[in-house]
Design a protein around this nucleic acid. Structure first.
Length: 856
RNA sequence: GGGCGGUUAGCUCAGCUGGUUAGAGCACCUGCUUUACACGCAGGGGGUCCGGGGUUCGAGUCCCUGACCGCCCACCA
């Protein structure tokens, strides 16, 4: 065993061993109950970031724990084709070659994407592997695989046949940069500072002007009406009349509509049905014309008029404003702070446009999915996160599923010149209506999330009734970030119920959002990102996992380098502890031996640590689990047990040495098992040094209750430990040499066999019974005596401090007890407890005073 | 505009249904080349629990309110 633990060499070696053993692969025939988690498939364009690293650390801990418990634990592995993101990456590469995707054409372009994927698409999974993730890599799936594509097509056609998926001309969110429609959930709202302009529209009858308020004057070129609130007395005479849109010189009706807020702006709203979602609704209510003046390329159309056609909308904005000013029509300008939609992919301001797209009505799918959460068949952790789900589901709107991209699942839709639309899984040979073979396939592809929604079952072979599907669906747990609860989780629940016969998982664990150390969002563009790969390179994957799990306790946490370092420290500590055990004991098999009380104490601590860690994992509280492991390994095992064991390891009694060796090896064995879900490489590496024939991955999880609790041993060891701590403090505070000769007199029978512990670790002689010549000292609530050269005088400050403390506490307790309201209203047991405490403090104070009096 | 979470030691965080003297890791101070580990050992100092009200015998914990930070949802130009 190397004397230094070097994760950079150990971890890859261990990973290779797992890989060779095929340790993570699961098949339906394997024994045990299934336990299934489907990994959130990373984008093939992605690189491991902090969010992944935490998300994966949690899942791997859960999977490894269940695997050790004997479950048939499957962690479904794969990647997402990530339509827009991937297309963007490949287009950027093309641009470097001076090409656009149109130069290549659709087929050649898609081929280029596949080539790119073959080259770099596997990087992210390699990074997952480096973190130690025990995914079933052998059954990796990709959302664009043939089989997966078949599932997508099947679902599309089924929803169409059901009548909920259809084509319609509606207002959608258009990203002019990505040149595609995006769904509402892909729009991020950011607050921006705009200017609210008040613009005069002449009344058609020449009787004056009507002033409207808008932040986008450029859209007035597409105005087809002006709306006022029907209750607004200022405009009651104008409703039914007409106004003239400036610059466009168009006569448009003045219509009454409740949507217009009387108090906002001027109370008159210009209506541009083709470029604003509200105006669209109002326009349809009043039959107003939809005039598209901004095209899909973000430029002004012919309909905007010769002067503006062809200009980018920003340029046109300036020109329109200048033209209005020249005519003296801009009455006022004031700053307006409001929120505006941006493309979540590229950050471009979203352009609301009317467009012919495919939509899916969601109410029917959402209802049973909402019910599943409401009645507890699907639970969110931590509790309360399901609010996000309900809020969206209860007000769900149609989903625009078509995208004007090339990379993705092309719609299984064909059009015939005769007007027929054919929706079916395989390409039709001829039009069923007119018989024509001249069919044109819809060019659009599906929203990436449409295919992601099928992940839990499409990865298992659905729509075929495969053995894997039967064995591993439904799954158990889903671990993900809060921001895709609606985008992904909700849609999986919906599609699982609709197509796979039931909910896809029972527990949804929402992992924390890790912020930059300064509290800002971690992002590349802000420069606040911290690369987990660098952490792994510096401290190792296990340390990184430990740190992330420890951090991930509440909803949002700031990244803490200290947590990772703590993990690193724990790894080193365990490595060195193992080195001590392995180099000082012979390989001995068999159950632990209780030779001294500390052995029983150790087994008791092991038992409670086992319970604590197991319970925490079962509650999905990995932060608590990892902290319990740390405390147990460092304090119980290393600080106390190993130090105590050395007394026998380095002693002359061979039988005692053998016995303690056996217990040490047992404790190490169990500690490694408990550590494995969190520190898989380190624990496996040490495990192999133990000479175990099987991998730790497949070893059993410790059960609590393995050994009976020995209350008497635990009591005497606890007393001995307190005594040792007291001796150390006395030495440290009084600058006494570490080995200064002290003699402790303990109440008869208190220490029992633990007397050796006090001798060995406290470096003191021990008397069974109080020593008349010693200084009385209270250890916990046990009175002992300590004697040694010069000790009495040295203890004076300590005794004085103790006396003051006892008096203060006594006063506090007496004040409480003197309060009639406390005595009469607090629970009797509490009052009694306080009385007992007061009595204790009184005795302590008296004793301390007596001791002081006795000092020379 | 609604809603959620947070604000506890210099830093990052624990503190269950209100009940002793509010904890941990890191950092800091003191002393240790003790034969697993200086990525260590032993000891120590350090907190008006964001502000203001309230409920209660008793509040870090419950209620109201304000401030700040982060996030989610949202078609008021």
């Amino acid at each position: 065993m190397e004397s230094r633990y070097d994760p950079a060499t150990v971890e890859p070696a261990i990973a290779a061993r797992w890989s060779e053993a095929g340790a993570f692969s699961v098949s339906p025939e394997d024994p045990g109950d299934p336990f299934v988690i489907a990994v959130p498939p990373p984008n093939i364009t992605g690189s491991l970031h902090m969010g992944h690293a935490l998300n994966l650390s949690i899942q791997d801990a859960l999977i490894r724990h269940q695997r050790m418990r004997g479950r048939k634990a499957l962690w479904i592995c794969g990647t997402d084709h990530a339509g827009i993101a991937t297309q963007n990456v490949v287009e950027r590469k093309l641009r470097d070659e001076g090409l656009t995707r149109f130069d290549l054409g659709r087929e050649a372009f898609i081929e280029r994407v596949w080539d790119w994927r073959a080259e770099s698409g596997g990087t992210i999974l390699e990074q997952f592997r480096r973190l130690g993730c025990s995914l079933d890599y052998a059954h990796e799936r990709f959302t664009m695989d043939d089989g997966y594509a078949r599932a997508v097509t099947r679902v599309f056609v089924a929803l169409h046949d059901k009548g909920v998926l259809y084509r319609a001309n509606r207002m959608i969110n258009w990203c002019t940069r990505c040149a595609t429609a995006i769904s509402d959930l892909e729009v991020e709202h950011h607050d921006v500072e705009d200017v609210l302009y008040e613009i005069d529209y002449a009344l058609a009858d020449g009787s004056g002007v009507l002033t409207v308020a808008t932040v986008r004057p450029v859209t007035l070129l597409g105005d087809s009406g002006v709306a006022v609130n029907p209750e607004d007395a200022r405009f009651s005479g104008l409703v039914g009349g007409e106004a003239i849109v400036p610059l466009a010189d168009r006569r448009v009706p003045i219509v009454p509509d409740d949507h217009v807020e009387i108090g906002f702006g001027t109370g008159a709203l210009k209506i541009t049905p083709a470029h604003d979602p509200n105006d669209f609704e109002i326009g349809r209510r009043h039959g107003l014309e939809e005039i598209t003046v901004i095209g899909f390329d973000g430029r002004m159309t012919e309909a905007a008029g010769h002067r503006y056609a062809g200009l980018g909308s920003d340029e046109a904005h300036e020109l329109v404003l200048a033209d209005l000013r020249e005519r003296g029509l801009v009455r006022a300008e004031r700053p307006l702070h409001h929120s505006v939609g941006h493309c979540s992919r590229c950050g471009t301001r979203v352009e609301p446009l009317v467009s012919l797209q495919w939509f899916c009505d969601m109410e029917g799918l959402a209802a049973p999915a909402t019910a599943a959460v409401r009645d507890g068949r699907v639970r969110f952790h931590p509790k309360g996160q399901e609010r996000i789900y309900f809020e969206w589901m209860d007000a769900i709107r149609p989903w625009c599923v078509s995208r004007q991209l090339w990379w993705g699942h092309q719609l299984p839709v064909w059009y015939c010149a005769c007007g027929e639309t054919i929706v079916q899984e395989s390409p039709p040979a001829a039009c069923p209506t007119c018989g024509s073979a001249e069919l044109r396939r819809d060019e659009d592809v599906l929203d990436t999330w449409f295919s992601s929604a099928l992940w839990p079952f499409a990865t298992l072979g659905w729509p075929d009734e495969t053995a894997r599907l039967q064995a591993f669906y439904p799954g158990n747990v889903l671990v993900t970030a809060r921001d895709i609860i609606n985008l992904w989780v909700a849609r999986m629940v919906m599609s699982g119920i609709e197509f796979a016969g039931g909910i896809p998982f029972t527990d949804v664990v929402i992992n924390s959002t890790i912020q930059a150390p300064d509290g800002r969002r971690m992002s590349k563009s802000l420069g606040t990102g911290i690369d987990p790969l660098e952490l792994i390179a510096e401290h190792g994957a296990d340390a990184t996992r430990y740190g992330l799990l420890k951090m991930g306790s509440s909803q949002d946490v700031r990244f803490s380098a200290g947590a990772i370092e703590e993990g690193r420290g724990l790894c080193t500590k365990l490595w060195n502890a193992a080195r001590l055990i392995l180099t000082t004991t012979d390989p001995v098999a068999g159950a632990p031996v209780v030779g001294e009380p500390i052995d029983a104490w150790m087994l008791g601590r092991l038992d409670s640590a086992t319970r604590e860690i197991t319970d925490a994992i079962d509650r999905f509280d990995l932060a608590t689990a990892v902290k319990a492991l740390y405390r147990f390994a460092w304090n119980d095992v290393c600080d106390w047990y190993l130090e105590a064991a050395k007394l026998r390891l380095y002693g002359d009694d061979l039988a005692a040495k053998l016995a303690v060796s056996q217990t040490l090896r047992h404790v190490l064995d169990r500690t490694l098992r408990l550590a494995h879900p969190f520190l898989p490489h380190l624990s496996e590496a040490i495990w192999s040094e133990l000479g175990q024939p099987e991998l730790l991955v497949a070893a059993g999880w410790p059960a609590s209750g393995e050994t009976p609790i020995d209350a008497e041993a635990e009591r005497s060891v606890t007393a001995a430990i307190e005594l040792v701590v007291a001796l150390r403090r006395i030495r440290a505070e009084n600058d006494l040499k570490t080995r200064a000769e002290l003699t402790v007199g303990a109440p008869a029978g208190l220490l029992g066999a633990s007397v050796e512990l006090v001798r060995g670790l406290g470096h003191a002689a021990v008397l069974d019974g109080l020593d008349d010549g010693g200084v009385p000292v209270l250890v916990g609530d046990v009175p002992v005596t300590i004697s040694g050269a010069g000790l009495a005088e040295a203890l004076r400050p300590r005794l004085e401090k103790h006396l003051a403390g006892a008096l203060a506490e006594l006063e506090r307790a007496e004040r409480m007890l003197a309060d009639e309201r406390f005595v009469s209203r607090a629970p009797a047991a509490l009052v009694e407890g306080e009385r007992a405490k007061a009595e204790g403090f009184r005795r302590e104070a008296a004793e301390a005073r007596a001791q002081l009096d006795e000092l020379p």
